[in-house]
Nucleic acid binder design. Structure first.
Lengths: 251, 251
DNA sequence: AACTGCGGTTCCATTTTCTGGAACTTTCCG
DNA sequence: CGGAAAGTTCCAGAAAATGGAACCGCAGTT
């Protein structure tokens, strides 16, 4: 068990609302002796991976993580192109937009773009959601074959329902979330990929459930879909599914 | 020399436009034998700190960095409060806003908030600037004593000019940047701190130089200043310098 | 003031991991 | 296809990491 794995295990503690840790908490969560935890956190501090909050015992990720997250975002021309599309839609409609990607069975937001309407949506960056319970996740899963989805959700009770849901997403070319992950907030998502890097991302807009009617939703779907289609064409994404509003299935 | 330090050195390669690295590049930049570099990158890959781009030889930061950057942002109530202020100002004025912090002699943006006006400013997150050459940097440095600034810039040729500049910032309570780091773009920044964590951040708005006149600049300064003052009051920041428009010194 | 408990740090012998150079393998390009 | 460049594996020795115990620092209680 290398120290690098221990360090990564410490870093994995962050998330799901955990913003800082102490020596004792690390010791308990990783099952390491106190002495090892103390030395590990110290070494990580000195390497810049962690920093203490105001000289207290509380350790948070070091500020180098800001640079690293940005480098991740900039490493992908797919993300850059999709960001342009979502920014434009965010400005056009005034609602908040996201770029998200899959990591195992979860989605995580890569970038967000604040809207101007009255709805202040908590930033999704750093917040992981089950893929099958979010529009972005479903739009991304819909790009996979049923066999691939079955393998990913092997043994999971939600697999059967999910496969039916994904058939629907494929038919429509977009995924919809209705107050699913946030009360009062709906979302629409369209996924697109880059075959040269074998990655895919979801473009998403979220908006207040009660204030946005179907005509505006259609316009947003079209805006995301047209932009994503342009990206798919220029990157050669043969798995792209263009949104077809006439195929919309209402619940 | 521990493997953790080597890993951190690899992670430090990202930034200044570098979004991915190969084994050979790491070998050269860190002065390590190829064998060591290959094993190091592999161990970091397996730990999730790095990932390859589409199975190529190119390594970028792993997606865990997104979570870690978010945890950093959420670890500070100062950043959260300041973000509220900047979002409000961004919506009120339509210009892009930032939260930035100091790291040595550099500033780095923690969060950005896209405006709605026609100016599309490249995201500053992940882009480090010399603190003395940016409004956010100067507003943060102005909170330090001259002695502290001299120590930070010990031996640096720009120290003398900077100290004069900081006296000006202290007199005004805000810092201004006029087409300094980006052509055609001006910025104003106000710094505020949290004595309980001993950290400080700068609230900043950037806008097109040619399109924003002095009355609107004053209103933006007031918006940032009032918000920052509220934060300072509630966190007990005795080093806070409220903006005083009557003390403005024009170049 | 002394004591106790909790969180964290240091010491040290032992164990484990990491290292560099060389040989080998894979990939890419002309 | 061949050659060169990039990357990987092997192995003995060196270096780092480990766990348990002792120690330290701080805060609260008597």
């Amino acid at each position: 068990m290398s120290i690098l794995n221990n360090a990564a295990a410490v870093l994995s503690c962050y998330g799901a609302g955990c913003t800082d840790v102490t020596v004792t908490e690390v010791s308990e969560r990783l099952g390491l002796p106190k002495a090892s935890s103390s030395r590990l956190l110290r070494a990580m501090r000195e390497a810049g991976m962690l920093e203490t909050i105001g000289g207290t015992r509380r350790h948070r990720p070091g500020r180098m993580m800001l640079d690293l997250a940005a480098a991740f975002r900039h490493s992908s021309s797919l993300i850059s192109r999709a960001s342009e599309v979502v920014v434009t839609a965010t400005r056009q409609f005034g609602h908040t937009g996201y770029i998200s990607l899959l990591d195992g069975r979860e989605v995580t937001a890569v970038a967000d773009f604040e809207g101007t309407n009255l709805l202040r949506v908590v930033s999704n960056i750093g917040r992981r959601l089950p893929a099958h319970l979010s529009a972005t996740g479903r739009s991304l899963l819909a790009r996979m074959s049923d066999e691939e989805v079955r393998r990913l959700y092997d043994g999971a009770p939600e697999a059967k329902v999910l496969l039916r849901e994904l058939a629907r997403v494929r038919s429509q070319g977009f995924a919809v979330s209705e107050q699913e992950s946030t009360e009062g907030v709906d979302g629409i998502a369209v996924a697109v990929g880059d075959p040269s890097t074998n990655e895919a991302i979801a473009l998403c807009i979220v908006f207040p459930h009660a204030l946005v009617g179907e005509p505006e939703r259609d316009r947003m779907i079209a805006a995301l879909g047209d932009g994503a289609e342009e990206i798919a064409r220029s990157l050669g994404d043969r798995a792209f599914i263009p949104p077809k509003l006439e195929n919309r299935i209402t619940t």
